Simulated scan of single mutants.
Amino acid sequence: MSAALRIGMDIGGSKTAAVALDDAGTVVAATELGTVRGDDGVVDTAESAIVALATQTGVAPSGFASVGIGIPGQVDRGLGVVRNAYNIGVARLPLAQRLSARTGLAVSLDNDVTAAAIGAAHLMRLSGTVAYLNLGTGLSAGFVVDGVPLRGAHGVAGEIGHLAVDPRERPCPCGQRGCLETVASGSALRTYWPAGGDHPGRVLLSAIAAGDAEARAAYDALVAGAASCVRLLVLALDPHTVVIGGGLRLLGAPLVDGIRGELDLAAATSPFLTELELSARVQVLPADSSAAAVGAALAGNL
């Protein structure tokens, strides 16, 4: 294996996925392990992933070209610091510096959804402007324009989940009411459909099939909220493609067809929306995709 291999890592609340990419951007090795919470735990997890990839590829842990990490929270790329990543128990962590000190490798950080947008564009061979809509525990978006990520002046581009527009005005942890995240996210399903348990997306469709009216209401809100997000992204950025990603995409065709149906229904009464061809822009990230980890590896050069 070439020493030019790059590592990409997606550190999430429950698991960390890592890949090694060759010069052509092809995945040549992959690993997944549980994320250990807290500052030391996150650093330990990242180091363990590097060691696992080193074992698979035959490259010494210090022999990789670079490490890119996608991580939730507020990311300062210049300082290599992540803040307020509460789902992994981190308030402020200079992750790049600490991991580099342990491994001797160049380490860069990026927001996890931005990394996923980069990876999705690469793996799905998408050109032009790509918007990535992350329907997960939370709700946010990432953007790639002609292969270059759009991060914004303060690294918060794409935080559309905290746009307060929903007329139900449900309270959001951010302090506002009516945020899109209060209807179109896994956390919204848990809060407003408690019968779904800790992982409501896994049982939502079966509950609907069994006649659960509250599950149906939660699903309808999710679909309508996601469709609103697609309209928002198209009107704000006019992307060629809107990729649906995040864990809720695993609801599959019922969710995606529902979103497209909502978009077509709105377009049927609006010549303006008809011209935008909203539903035709929607694609879905494949279920087995390692987009966030791949994007993190590529992001160091972007």
Rank of each mutant, 00 (worst) to 15 (best):
Q97P: 08
P94I: 12
L163I: 15
P167A: 13
A49C: 15
R190G: 02
V256Q: 10
G252T: 13
P286M: 10
A188D: 10
C174I: 06
D22M: 05
G58T: 09
R249L: 01
T274Q: 15
A213K: 12
D44Q: 09
A280Q: 14
G175P: 14
V165R: 14
E32D: 09
H162M: 02
G136W: 14
V67E: 01
R6T: 07
L232E: 09
G68D: 06
T55H: 15
G34N: 09
S270I: 13
T35V: 14
G258V: 03
S185E: 06
I7V: 07
A24Y: 11
R168E: 06
P286Y: 13
G158T: 00
G261A: 10
V156I: 15
H154M: 11
L126G: 09
M124I: 09
P239A: 13
G197Y: 09
E277L: 07
L222S: 08
G225M: 00
S108L: 14
A20T: 03
G258A: 05
V59F: 04
A293D: 11
V294P: 00
V203E: 04
M1W: 02
G197F: 15
A115K: 02
T26P: 03
V242K: 01
G246M: 09
A291L: 10
R190T: 05
G136N: 02
V203M: 10
M124H: 05
R168Q: 13
Q74H: 13
A141K: 01
G41L: 05
H154K: 08
R216E: 15
A218N: 02
R102D: 00
A266N: 15
V81C: 15
A195L: 07
S2L: 13
D146G: 14
A164T: 10
A46P: 05
A207K: 01
A227N: 02
L263R: 10
V90Y: 01
G80M: 01
A52I: 00
F272C: 08
V230L: 11
R260V: 00
G178F: 08
S289W: 00
L33M: 11
L302Y: 06
T191A: 15
L204W: 02
G295F: 03
L133K: 11
A157H: 04
I7Y: 05
A266W: 12
D264W: 00
A49S: 11
R168D: 12
D220W: 07
V36E: 15
G155R: 08
R125K: 04
V28T: 10
A101W: 00
Q97K: 03
R231W: 03
G70A: 09
G34R: 13
A46R: 07
P72M: 14
K15S: 04
V27R: 02
Y86H: 01
P171I: 08
G136C: 06
T16R: 07
E169Q: 15
A226F: 10
V165K: 00
T31S: 01
G161D: 12
L163M: 13
S228A: 07
R83P: 08
P286D: 11
G258S: 08
G12R: 09
